[in-house]
């Protein structure tokens, strides 16, 4: 994975669906186009659901990877 300039990282571990997604939505809303927002989530559902939301909203999924007991998901705001 190449270097990604993560503008903001949100630790939503311990929070169930839709907590991590909601935190991401809020962060994306306040971000500038092109910014990368990262979410840490221990919720399996969110790891599947956040990429769906990103696709639906037309943003870009930078990565969605397992890191031990949680997932790291990064999104680039596209519009």
């Amino acid at each position: 994975m190449s270097e990604v300039d993560v503008k903001k990282s949100i630790d939503a571990r311990g929070s169930f669906c839709p907590g991590p997604l909601m935190e991401l939505i809020k962060a994306v809303k306040h971000a500038q186009v092109g910014d990368v927002i990262e979410v840490l989530s221990s919720d399996t559902g969110s790891a599947k659901d956040i990429p769906e939301w990103v696709k639906k909203m037309g943003h870009e999924l930078v990565y969605c990877q397992e890191a031990g007991d949680h997932w790291k998901i990064a999104v680039r705001k596209a519009r």
């Binding site: 669906c17 839709p18 997604l21 909601m22 939505i25 809020k26 939301w53 639906k56 909203m57």
Partner: peptide, 11 residues
């Protein structure tokens, strides 16, 4: 509430 809130937050 979950579906509605995420829908609202998604436009």
């Amino acid at each position: 509430s979950l579906v509605g809130s995420v829908a609202a937050m998604s436009g």
